[in-house]
Amino acid sequence: MTPGLNRGKIMNGKLIKFSDPDMTSRELEGVYRVLGSSDFSGGAEIEAFERDFARYVGRKYGVSFSGAKVAFYLCLKALGLGKGDTVILSACSWRETGQVLAWAEIVPRFVDIDYWSMAIEPSKIEKEITPEVKAIIGSNPNGHPADWQQLEKIAKDHSLFLIEDSTEAIGCSFKGRRVGSFGICSLFDFSQPSALVTGRGAMIVTDCEGLASLLRILRDRSAEERQSVVKSRQPYLGCSMSGLEAALGVAQLQRIDEILQKRKAVEEFYSHFLCGFEGIKDPYVSPQATEVHWFSYVVHLGTRFSKSSRDAIIEDLRRENIEAYPYCHPLHMTGWAIERGMRRGMLPITERVADRTIALPFHGQLSFEEVEFIVKNLKEASLNVGAGAAIY
């Protein structure tokens, strides 16, 4: 819990949580089913979750993992990316991306973003392509799809791998095509505050049978495979998803439309209370994004807000026991990146977004009254620090 969240007023005697997984008796039944079996670590639940999730996003194969970090690391290894290679990506990306690239000794080349969608700007990519570049990593920030049509074209024209980071975008679509279906493969994360939660866990989905097979080899071995001289030549990390996590995943996936609809209702609550308030802009949806389900509810502050005033607003919300956070910590301004010569000023739009965005509580358990309370305090806090009239 963030320091200070136990202070001040609590609405209806409780903290308004940033994330609260949507669990029902169906999820409990799945867990009890595994607990009553003899196989907690593998088995049919994992196979079912991989098959069903791949089908949901429109892919042929799904490979589950114990966590998204290790899944992304093994994805890079399976694609043959390693020391000295360069990848192009946005610094407004999943927070663990940079750490994994550092582990793999892969050089990140950051490109700025579109201010409104917060997705990587395709028009800025081609001038950054050099012989060292081997891949583009595109993300769907906070659930808003990137311009996958342009990204696929650039990757194809330059013979680069295109990797889709969908850690924040379950259920979203670009021009009628579900995210998770773009590029050589796509990565999903099932930890909070995702709409689909298994506790921990992740999935890589792909249409490439060879890539899926290699990922399974790098992930783990069955007891029989460990006895095989041939199959044990390639070292593995032992990072499979557990049967318990997979059972949660199967149940959550069966309910995913219901879960997303409940979150959509909360989005409408926010829109109702924020409508017309000068200086705070609700999330943007581009015409190409045919379906968007927000990862969190992110608002943009006006031009006269500074990073310090944004932070003051967040602190005011926390005093009222409302969990809120900065949405983005730019990857090029983290410790490992600064040690590699990166600095503030390199990506002005990314930095502007990072300084002026707030991620508010967002989950299907929020009531109309709770959202009203959140927005009321957000407005009061913004007035206390000085509202900005313009948004850009």
Rank of each mutant, 00 (worst) to 15 (best):
E225S: 00
S240L: 06
S232C: 05
R233N: 09
E225K: 01
A247M: 10
G243A: 15
V250F: 03
V230K: 12
E224Q: 13
V230Y: 14
G238T: 04
Y236E: 05
Q234I: 12
M241F: 09
S242L: 09
S228A: 05
A251K: 06
G249E: 05
G249A: 01
I217Q: 13
L248P: 04
R226C: 10
R221G: 02
S232A: 07
Y236T: 05
S242F: 08
M241K: 09
Q234S: 11
L237R: 12
K231H: 08
R226H: 03
P235G: 03
L237S: 10
E245Y: 05
E245Q: 15
L214I: 07
A246S: 11
A251N: 02
R221C: 03
G243M: 11
L244K: 11
P235N: 06
V229K: 14
C239S: 12
I217H: 09
G238F: 00
G249I: 00
K231M: 13
L237F: 14
A223W: 10
L244I: 15
M241S: 11
S240T: 08
A251C: 11
R219H: 10
R216E: 09
V229M: 11
L214E: 08
S240Q: 09
L237N: 05
A223C: 05
S232H: 04
V229I: 13
L248G: 01
C239K: 14
A251F: 04
A246V: 06
R233P: 04
L214H: 01
S242P: 08
G238N: 04
P235C: 02
S228P: 12
L248N: 11
L214R: 13
A251L: 01
G238P: 01
S222P: 06
D220N: 15
E225N: 02
L248K: 14
C239Q: 11
C239N: 09
R219F: 06
G249H: 04
I217F: 04
I217P: 00
R219D: 07
G243N: 10
C239I: 13
S222F: 00
S228G: 08
V230G: 05
A223G: 02
M241H: 09
L237C: 11
A247L: 06
S232I: 01
A246T: 02
A247S: 15
E225Y: 03
D220C: 11
V250G: 03
E225H: 03
E224W: 01
G249Y: 01
C239Y: 09
S228W: 01
E224R: 14
E224F: 03
S228V: 05
R219K: 15
R216W: 01
V229S: 12
Q227M: 14
D220I: 06
A251H: 05
S232T: 14
G249T: 03
R221W: 02
L214V: 06
G238I: 00
R226I: 08
R219N: 14
A251E: 12
R233I: 13
K231Y: 04
L237T: 12
Q234E: 15
S242E: 08
S240F: 06
S222Y: 00
V230M: 12
E224V: 03
M241N: 10
L218A: 02
S242Y: 07
M241I: 15
L218N: 00
R233G: 04
R233H: 12
E225P: 03
S240E: 07
